[in-house]
C-alpha cells in the first residue's frame, strides 16, 4: 500500500524534516506513527496524500508514484485515500449529510449513488439520526465521526489520520478508535499519527516512531514508548 524508499524532505528554509526514511506498509495494516512534535510525523503523513512533496527518494502510495505524477493526476491519487484531521475540517454551513455528500459531489458521483452511500456510511459512524444537524450543533466526537464518514464514503483503500483524537476526551477517543478498528477490519489500511499513549499501548498494532527525521523504532505490536 505504501512503499517509501530513502525519502528525505528538506523544506525551503533548510529544515530537514525527514532524512532517508524507508517504510513499507502492506494492504490492511493498522499503523501508528508516533514521535514528539516536530519530529517529522506530520511531514510523513502529509507526503502520503501529496500535500508535501519529498525532496528525494521514491514513494509509491496505493500503486501510484507520488513523486513523478503529473499535477493533474493528484486528484485521482486522493480519490483512493481518506484523510482525517485533528480539527475535523467540516464545512460549517452544510449539514452532516451535505458534508459527507460533498466528498462524492466533487468527484462527480451520480446523485442516487450519493444518497445511498451517505446513508450507509452514517450508519457505520452512528450518526444516522443526526443527519440534519449542522457541525455547530454536534459535539467534538460527533464532528470527528462526520469527518470519518466523509473520508470513507468513497471507499478508499487507505485512510490517513493526523491526530484524529487530539481534541477529544479519552472516552470519546475510544469511540472513534472503535470506528477505525471496524474500518480496518473491512480491509482498509489505516495510518494514524497520534500522541495518545493509552490508545497506542492498548491497541497493540504496528508502531513506527520518528525522531529528528529518522525512524528510530518499527515494531509489529508496539507500544507508545514515551512518557506523556
Amino acid at each position: 500500500m505504501i512503499d517509501m524508499r530513502d525519502v528525505s524532505k528538506v523544506y525551503e528554509n533548510g529544515a530537514m524534516a525527514l532524512d532517508h526514511v524507508n517504510v513499507h506498509i502492506d494492504k490492511g495494516e493498522f499503523v501508528f506513527i508516533v514521535g514528539a512534535s516536530g519530529a517529522g510525523k506530520s511531514t510523513f503523513i502529509r507526503m502520503l496524500f501529496r500535500e508535501v512533496l519529498p525532496s528525494e527518494g521514491s514513494l509509491v502510495v496505493n500503486g501510484q508514484d507520488v513523486i513523478h505524477m503529473e499535477h493533474s493526476d493528484v486528484p485521482f491519487l486522493r480519490r483512493g485515500l481518506g484523510v482525517i484531521f485533528q480539527d475535523y475540517r467540516l464545512l460549517p454551513d452544510k449539514t452532516v449529510t451535505e458534508n459527507v455528500a460533498f466528498a462524492m459531489q466533487v468527484i462527480e458521483a451520480p446523485r442516487r449513488k450519493i444518497q445511498h452511500s451517505v446513508n450507509a456510511v452514517l450508519d457505520i459512524v452512528g450518526l444516522r439520526d443526526k443527519y440534519k444537524c449542522f457541525p455547530s450543533q454536534l459535539s467534538g466526537g460527533e464532528q470527528q465521526r462526520v469527518a470519518i464518514a466523509r473520508a470513507i464514503v468513497n471507499h478508499p483503500a487507505l485512510v490517513i489520520a493526523d491526530e484524529p483524537t487530539g481534541n477529544l476526551d479519552p472516552e470519546t477517543s475510544w469511540d472513534i478508535m472503535d470506528i477505525f478498528k471496524r474500518i480496518n477490519a473491512d480491509g482498509t489500511t489505516i495510518v494514524m499519527a497520534t500522541h495518545d499513549k493509552d490508545i497506542v499501548d492498548a491497541m497493540k498494532r504496528r508502531v513506527i516512531a520518528i525522531e529528528d527525521g529518522h525512524i528510530v523504532r518499527d515494531e509489529a505490536q508496539g507500544a507508545y514508548g514515551y512518557e506523556n
Partner: peptide, 17 residues
Amino acid sequence: RKEIAIMKYVGATDWFI
C-alpha cells in the same frame, strides 16, 4: 478557502474547483 482545501483533499480536479 476551507471548502477549496477540502475539495482538494477528497480529490476534486482543478477544473471542478
